[in-house]
């Protein structure tokens, strides 16, 4: 730019954020952990959308996944095991101006926080929920999680997990007022980025189950998929997740799936022979609870004073 200062050209934007502006502490996840790919995609979406760091809040529970807020240079809330969603909903309830993200895991969301998971989906508050599902408890060292494959040996089930795994997709799709359900794998960065971007753009609770590698404690679940790409089924649709040029070629199984079709989505979720990746369901018209919970934010002190006095006067003797 002929000697002009590099930031001169972006002055018009007032503030321009680079990836570094969203990167917090150095991630302490293990080498080869799928979480790193998810974090990189989140940073990219933040930059793409030029989110104001001070208006962005990432909320998490406890577990490997839930370290994410520390790796963001935004506001963050690293709370209690299983309780990310109620806190996130509370943040959004009276602060509709904040951009709320939730990072949670299969133990955090599907086990100890399962009650909140179902209800938060039904509240459908405007937020992006990313479930880092590696099918195992990592931080506490290899205990069975709700999504651990049957017969997989863990420290709590040394002879192998005794029950079939919970299916996060059928459960989520079964919740009334559900508005966005997508599934993705961590090892396809372009698609992961597009999925998280679409989730963030959606108005309402975007639930993204990300099948994620844990190189230390879980091999079978992901190796099987990595070794046999035919197990994955790419969902295509003009209303779905945009598939970048060249990426689609990696998938030998593809399906044109209308994300407005809940029955078809449930069919895909139930069929365990294939792992659907992409957008299973989206309903842009679902009721958003944050529009209800934020009622009355604009009341003046005079109006409030009049309101309290009116009610107090009802009790006058």
């Amino acid at each position: 730019m002929f000697g002009l200062k590099s930031d001169w050209s972006v002055k018009a934007n007032d503030r321009y954020f680079t990836l570094d502006d969203y990167a917090g502490a150095e991630p302490r996840w293990c080498t080869g952990c799928g979480d790193l790919a998810i974090l990189a995609s989140v940073h990219r979406v933040c930059r793409e959308k030029q989110l104001l760091p001070e208006k962005t809040v990432s909320v998490s529970g406890i577990g490997c996944s839930s370290r994410l807020p520390h790796y963001m240079k935004t506001y963050g809330f690293h709370g209690l095991h299983g309780r990310a969603l109620p806190v996130a909903c509370g943040v959004k309830s009276r602060r509709p101006d904040l951009d709320v993200w939730v990072a949670t895991g299969d133990g955090d969301c599907f086990s100890i926080g399962a009650g909140h998971w179902v209800h938060a989906l039904r509240y459908n508050m405007d937020m992006t929920v990313l479930v880092f599902d590696n099918g195992i408890y990592g931080l506490t060292k290899k205990q069975t999680s709700p999504t651990t494959p049957e017969e997989y040996q863990t420290n709590t089930h040394p002879s192998g997990a005794v029950l079939p795994p919970l299916n996060p997709l059928t459960v989520s799709l079964g919740v009334s007022n559900i508005s966005f359900v997508a599934q993705m794998v961590d090892w396809n960065p372009p698609l992961l980025y597009e999925t998280i971007k679409a989730a963030h753009e959606h108005k309402g609770t975007s639930f993204v189950r990300i099948v994620q590698r844990c190189p230390v404690f879980m091999d079978v679940m992901n190796d099987e998929m990595l070794d046999d790409p035919a197990r994955l089924l790419l969902l295509n649709h003009e209303q779905g997740i945009p598939v970048p040029d060249g990426v689609g070629k990696l998938f030998e199984n593809q399906l044109d799936h209308d994300p407005g079709d809940l029955s078809a989505a449930l069919g895909l979720a139930t069929d365990l022979s294939k792992i659907p990746v992409g957008l299973l369901y989206r309903n842009p018209d679902a009721r958003m609870y944050n529009e209800i919970s934020s009622n009355g934010l604009d009341l003046s002190h005079e109006e409030k004073l009049a309101g309290v006095n009116e009610v107090l006067d009802k009790f006058l003797i």
Binding site: R83, P86, V87, G90, V91, S93, G115, S294, G307, E310
Partner: peptide
């Protein structure tokens, strides 16, 4: 609602506390 307030009936006691903490944290 006369003072612009909102009662959230949460899914359980824990969520009620978490929801309040979220709102408090956000100011």
């Amino acid at each position: 609602q006369r003072v612009g307030g909102f009662v959230h009936q949460a899914e359980d006691e824990i969520a009620a506390a978490g929801f309040s903490i979220g709102a408090s944290y956000a100011g």
